[in-house]
Design a protein around this nucleic acid. Structure first.
Lengths: 142, 142
DNA sequence: CTTCTTGCAAATAATTTGCACTCCA
DNA sequence: TGGAGTGCAAATTATTTGCAAGAAG
């Protein structure tokens, strides 16, 4: 695969990725950079993001709104327990999938490369709040 | 929310969803039905799928190829082993997460509601194809 | 200099929407 | 009958691609 040359656009895109905690879309990157690089092309961003993700430097994810967002690969490890109300997240360290994966590999002939796992629930705070809201006379929207 | 009237298109779409083990896209449903209903419109399918999913009858998922696929909500518990090359899917029946979830519930105070799990890898066919394509002068470093 | 990159414009692909007509309840 | 549902065509949105000009090594 071709060598990645070092251009200022490329650097700028990488910097945005590095500086943002959450995954960002091509368009968001474009907006962030259009002042500094007035004739930066959106296609340049798409092409770079694609290249980054091929190289494993960046993780590509399709969100439920159908938009693809990217984030630095480092940040993207582990599994989470996320609250369906407030989106509060707890990292899950125990991952019981190795065993399962070994079995699958044997049974299906697949070469397992990885997995995604997210568990959803309500966090204690939201549960409490819900209890409170359940009082006979107190009905409140959220 | 408006009452869902009973039309043959609507029934046919539902039937497809019910009869398919894996999630299906609007286009796939369209293809399956275009013989039986020559002037069925794709937009009708999109609109119905959207309505189904609003009503909770059907689950909507955006896949990595950016295409939205739908499946009957019942089937909801089921995890997949998907090939990173050809997207071939195998359903995983064993789900080792109950135990983990019980532990988490105790440890974190979350009330667990569900989870998503997908395992990625290369299917036997793609592995074979890859072997074949591997050129004589192989590169060592990885 | 030669390959990798970029910008621009045009092309796709999936999905959505406006509108007039049709059909179920 | 009246509103829900449909087909069709045109509109949107995110992303991709071809190509000539420009920069990096």
């Amino acid at each position: 695969m071709a060598v990645l040359k070092n251009t200022k656009q490329r650097g700028a895109i990488m910097e945005i990725l590095r500086n943002s905690a959450d995954p960002v879309s091509a368009e968001e990157i474009f907006d962030s950079l259009k002042n500094e690089y007035p004739n930066l092309a959106l296609s340049t961003i798409y092409r770079n993001l694609e290249r980054f993700s091929e190289n494993g430097m960046v993780t590509r994810d399709v969100f439920n709104d159908g938009v693809v967002r990217y984030s630095i690969a480092e940040e993207h490890h582990g599994h989470y327990l996320v609250c369906t109300q407030c989106s509060n997240k707890i990292k899950i360290d125990d991952c019981p999938l190795m065993r399962l994966e070994q079995g699958l590999q044997r049974d299906t002939g697949y070469e397992i490369e990885g997995h995604t796992l997210t568990i959803y629930g309500k966090c204690p705070d939201c549960l409490r709040r819900e209890q409170g809201a359940r009082e006979p006379h107190e009905k409140q929207g959220e």
